[in-house]
């Protein structure tokens, strides 16, 4: 039916020359948007999608890139089996999770109360302080990790000097250690890395919460204070529930970016991961498998396993929030 109808409508156009009809059919307005979005898709195809598909293929091969493309050898699931039973990988994954948890939990504990306080107690200085807290997020990880390297140095570092100085006061000498702490040894290395990660991202998360808090209508606070609510009650019963979507977002970011951590430990202790490989993360393990051991197949398997791990944790997080009744 509809075919007949449209033909009937087009009938007058049949008289016009073919070129004109075609031009009308393919108006510029119709194909222009495809031209506009094409750069994204061309670039994504070449440098995003193709590498992604190729890395699935690679994960099932044994291949040292130095010996040429023909040297590839199909090994089935062997790479995955090898990685999952490889102690080095499992240790690096454990380190990654450890550093993520030990940096993210304090981040969350600090960021929301800090944002709430900046929101309620500051007017003129709010932007100055949120700017200061935000500054670490925009500076070069390499530069700042190198500076931290010197500050955490055992014999001359700023942190140890401060501890020694504090320990020189009466009474405090029992609290602070008398010997210099080796921040890069097996016991402390992950704490040190987690501290740097915490330092870098707390401000960003605080600013995100601050932005979310600013969308809460002031009437809610006013109404509650007329009813005699304390600031503490306002925090728990107005601010926290209202920023729940942002809480979900920042925890997702903690998971997704935390579990990819690479630069801080890589700069701090190098590709080996430091004493006892305590600073070796999963992404670093992937890097060293690919570019130090020249085993691209296993490295691709590591990449996919890490991606799956991150996706599963992110999904669990999503479920938990969905269950607790988050509505946007």
């Amino acid at each position: 039916m509809s075919v007949v109808d449209s033909r009937a409508e087009e009938a007058p156009a049949m008289v016009a020359p073919t070129v004109k009809r075609l031009r009308k059919k393919y108006r510029r307005q119709d194909w222009a948007p495809y031209v506009f979005i094409s750069p994204f898709f061309i670039l994504f195809g070449c440098f995003g999608l193709f590498p992604l598909i190729f890395s699935i293929y690679l994960a099932f091969q044994y291949w040292d890139p130095a010996s040429g493309l023909n040297a590839m050898e199909y090994v089935g699931w062997e790479n995955f089996y090898y990685v999952l039973t490889d102690e080095w990988f499992l240790d690096s994954l454990y380190n990654t999770v450890w550093i993520t948890v030990v940096s993210s939990v304090p981040m969350q504990l600090v960021a929301l109360p800090l944002a709430f306080f900046l929101h309620t107690a500051y007017r003129r200085w709010r932007n100055v302080f949120s700017g200061i807290y935000f500054l670490p997020f925009i500076t070069s990880t390499v530069a700042i990790t190198l500076v931290f390297n010197s500050m955490f140095s055992k014999d001359f570092g700023v942190f140890n000097s401060m501890l020694t100085w504090l320990g020189s006061f009466p009474l405090l000498e029992y609290v602070f250690p008398s010997d210099n702490i080796d921040w890069f040894d097996q016991e402390h290395l992950r704490w040190t890395i987690a501290f740097i990660v915490w330092w870098r991202f707390t401000g960003w998360i605080t600013v995100l919460y601050l932005a979310a808090l600013q969308t809460i209508p002031n009437d809610l606070y006013e109404a509650s204070s007329i009813d005699g609510a304390s600031t503490w009650q306002q925090f728990w019963h107005i601010a926290v529930p209202m920023v729940k979507p942002m809480l979900y977002f920042t925890i997702s970011m903690n998971i997704i970016f935390g579990l990819q951590i690479f630069e801080e430990p890589f700069i701090m202790v190098g590709v080996t991961g430091g004493v006892g490989q305590m600073g070796k993360t999963a992404a670093m393990h992937m890097y060293s498998t690919a570019f130090v051991d020249s085993d691209f197949g296993t490295a691709s398997a590591i990449a996919w396993l890490l991606f799956l791990f991150i996706a599963v944790i992110a999904l669990i997080n999503n479920r938990i929030f969905a269950k607790s009744g988050m509505e946007k």
């Binding site: 440098f47 193709f50 890395s55 690679l58 990819q260 690479f262 992937m286 490295a299 991606f307 991150i310």
Partner: peptide
């Protein structure tokens, strides 16, 4: 949603 490290190795090949 795709993390940077996932395509890193083949990107170097490309």
């Amino acid at each position: 949603l795709l993390p940077q490290f996932l395509g890193l190795i083949p990107s170097v090949l490309v």
